[in-house]
Design a binder for these strands. Structure first.
Lengths: 259, 259
DNA sequence: AAATTTTTGAATAATTTATTCGTAATTCGA
DNA sequence: TCGAATTACGAATAAATTATTCAAAAATTT
């Protein structure tokens, strides 16, 4: 049972010194952490033996047990009362945790927007594809590279044309059991839409991961995954966008791993 | 700092008996609650004084301090597993949210382990470097590429030798106002340590991002950043590891953006 | 292989915790 | 209000736990 609550509940039935101890502990819970029984006794102005007897009266073996119980009770309350999540991603000051906050928000939105059928479909499509072509807009090149790398590591035949000069040629060589993955931001890039259309002419399945809005690339796809952008300044927004793209891709990869 | 993580990280540099103690505590954390130093000693099969010395080696005043720290650390870990969080990363069933859970845990640990001074130092070092060489072990190649790409986008002179055949040559051409970034998993890769040493001979600053343990690459660095690995099966662990590496790198990038 | 350092545990010192016991305070019943 | 019974309290001390010392053993370096 919660030790601090017990203390408050029993307060009325306690003797003078015991009440002094209870009050002190309730007021200075965090101090107890580094107090020995005699230090506590001194702080409260009672004898060391009274501290021990108090502990036993509350039902503990002795002072160390009480101390641990108080600590447990205190820590538990801290977690329960914690409204925001700042603690969970580290000390407030760390550059990592500020970013962590924003990231969490974007990821949350991104996770929510993607229907699990589309995700499963994407995983299934990757798994059953003979070859996979990855195409990306300028801002998503690094993400595309990452995806390609991971696919290759998993034993999928994946190709990404860094420069983009060859992507039309490559698309022309795809067959109907292949897959085209399009990664882009706004989804309006003409060349990507062009690649998608050419591929579809050959019966190729198209998977897109774009910003969550009405966009050409997404419309011309069979499987549509989205990223919900943040509302920060441009540079940070791009960072968070890529981060969310990566998260979706990691989701796909881990899905492929499980299979 | 998280006591159980510290224990795991230091495991390699501990002596036989100390390792026995660490392993026992890591495996039977909850037992510690009601163990005295000599009970623990008996359970593990070492002397009581060894327990005390172990506590002190980890940086605590003595056994009671260690015990409290372990307890704190254990209770803290519960936060990551808290159901409460499932809400924040979407519906429980989605493939993305399951991954999100694990990711959150790894990221949390990673955020906690990196001291903000090291992060600030890293950001400062990147900002003031003339040229930046990125070197990576096989498993971190895709992350290294990502980092290089982002650095270039920010206007930093960054080079990454994909194959690794040229990295020694490149390191030799670095000057004392340059920076070497090492990304690796276990940190034991000889060629990377070699590159680090060569670079340091020229007075180059070395920044490492490695697994959080006692490792050669980290030791030979001026600025040390870490990733706390998960305890999943190998494939997923690698995925989560890269993900956490990316998070740290995104932290650096966003720091550079703010500057 | 010798020298140095590190590790280890038995013995013991120091500290902390628990109990005993006598006195003081409080409660209860007339 | 007074004394008897009960309870509270703390000084002294016992018991237990924790920390240190030191010498032997093991590991590491030279």
């Amino acid at each position: 049972m919660n030790c601090l609550l017990k203390m408050r509940a029993m307060r009325e039935q306690l003797s003078v010194n015991e009440r002094k101890l209870a009050d002190f502990i309730l007021d200075n819970t965090q101090l107890l952490r580094d107090y020995s029984s005699s230090q506590l006794a001194d702080a409260v102005g009672v004898s060391q033996s009274s501290v021990v007897k108090f502990s036993q009266k509350l039902g503990y073996r002795g002072y160390p047990s009480l101390k641990l119980a108080v600590y447990e009770s205190y820590a538990g309350a801290g977690i329960a009362n914690d409204e925001d999540h700042s603690r969970h991603l580290g000390q407030a000051n760390s550059p990592l945790s500020t970013l962590g906050q924003k990231k969490l928000e974007v990821l949350e939105n991104t996770v929510n927007i993607n229907e699990s059928e589309q995700l499963s479909a994407a995983i299934q499509a990757i798994r059953s594809a003979r070859c996979i072509q990855v195409s990306a807009c300028a801002g998503s090149v690094s993400v595309a590279r990452y995806l390609t790398h991971q696919l290759l590591e998993l034993g999928c035949w994946a190709v990404f044309d860094e420069g983009g000069q060859l992507q039309h040629k490559i698309a022309d060589s795809l067959r109907d059991d292949d897959l085209l993955c399009i990664l882009c931001d706004f989804g309006g890039e003409e060349s990507l839409v062009e690649v998608a259309n050419r591929a579809r002419e050959h019966g190729v399945k198209v998977l897109s991961l774009t910003r969550y809005n009405y966009n050409a690339a997404s419309i011309h796809s069979d499987i549509r995954l989205y990223v919900v952008p943040s509302e920060d300044d441009e540079a940070l927004q791009r960072l968070l966008f890529r981060s969310a793209q990566l998260h979706v891709i990691e989701g796909l990869i881990s899905g492929l791993l499980e299979g």
